[in-house]
Design a binder for these strands. Sequence first.
RNA 1: GGUCUCUUGGCCGAGUGGCUAGGCAGUGGUCUGCAAAACCAUGUACGGCGGUUCGAAUCCGCCAGAGACCUCCA
Length: 489
Amino acid sequence: MNNNLHVYNTLSRKKEVFEPLNEPFVGMYVCGPTVYSDVHLGNSRTFISFDIIYRYLLHLGYKVRYVRNITDAGHLEGDRDEGDDKFAKKAKLEKLEPMEIVQKYTLGFHDVMRIFNTLPPSIEPTATGHISEQIEMVKEILNNGYAYEKDGTVYFDVEKYDKDHPYGLLTNRKLQDLLEGTRELSGQDEKKGRLDFALWIKAKPETLMKWPSPWGWGFPGWHIECSAMSTKYLGETFDIHGGGMDLQATHHTNEIAQSQACNHTAPVKYWMHTNMLTVNGARMSKSAGNGFLPHELFTGDHPLLERGYSPMVVRFFMAQSHYRSTLDFSNEALQGAEKGFQKLMTAGETLNKLNAESESTVNVAELKANCYKAMDDDFNTPVLIAQLFDAVKMINSIKDGKEKINEADLNELKSIYNSFVVDVLGLKADELTQSSETELTADLIDLILNIRLDAKKNKDFATSDKIRDELTKKGIKIKDTKDGFEWEV
RNA sequence: GGUCUCUUGGCCGAGUGGCUAGGCAGUGGUCUGCAAAACCAUGUACGGCGGUUCGAAUCCGCCAGAGACCUCCA
């Protein structure tokens, strides 16, 4: 298929040639959100990054099964394996049922994903929908001797596991270093080892979300859901597992251990991690309270924002950095992205109006090759965008008559633009609402501008300038052409 | 405290031994009645100090600063 694609694998800390286990099929699992609060922009970045990865794999012709879970149970508040999970706590705060919390924030998440023009995953499984699979997995891990039960709670035995398989594989750490780095836990602790984590947690009498199990009423630990659901839908070994870098050390490390302990095989061929979005150099996070919500960004209703930015501008802004780099957020950077995005979109419109000549003075084949080269190099979207701005220059030069393009090249150029801008990067021009009202407005603006055109013909520049100034004040940008006009809001 | 990462021109951000990244902003020009857009031109950029090399932003060492993970977070 395409043996040029290289992906950075966290396991090897190298870029590797991408060779799916079962070409042309690709199994990809990405850790989705815990739906106890609004997704912020940092969360969105990860899903947008993997959306572009998914889109490029599809573009290359792979048959991708993309699984992204919804965590709707089992995610505890603190580092102790006790107490309420995040949903129960939030439910108390908002005076709702836990499943109302789950529903509310799942819908909100889907809205945000739609607004950012991300493709839905092939399967979006929930933790609560796969309790029996998780219980079966815990039973198997117990059978295999890598877990132990204590008073209704089942723990994973990390030190026992590490004797057979290196536990700190994903972060390249030795167990001894991890043990030294673990902070002392206060209070009573029924775990044998300090690194041990809960697979199944005993419910308290007041726990709302609980299920029967061989160990009594309880609920699953956070990490087991991803192991159970990825195994169910993608098999014991699959191609790509993704998520934010913050999940690498704990969640993903534990996933590997669970799957290995249950299935006797490493679950994932390529581990991919996206970097964090930062605000003033510090990580955007829920707990730090420096999270931007998407709608705050769109409306500009946030103390750190001068004004709002459209979802596509934000998506473009994110694509301008590599997924493995941190990306810092600022008004200046967003404004720069906005201008660049508009330039790219305008060029797309211009492209559709170009006329073919008998010959070409531009090198479309090279442009195309460069676009693939960029994406094949671990999905290097910033370099792809640099190539696309070469295309923009090409398009505008042809429009100005400085370059020529023949029909075959023109069709190829349109195909490249469509493939990479629309299909792969998932960008589209910000659309105006398609109501009759806006059509009428458009007609009126055309009318006014035709009057202005007449005034110009009569050298009545005072009138023409007045019209332009007044429309500019209302946010309508006018561009004069040789024998007419163009405008945009 | 342990482990690790990062520091690129006014801003954002690629690049990993020699070849112009790119965008935004700025400056000069072409075009236009003026403007906008577009096009052309334009910047001794690689945290500091040393080392390796014919050659280092890119490799090595030290120093400084920032951050991440180890504790819920994409």
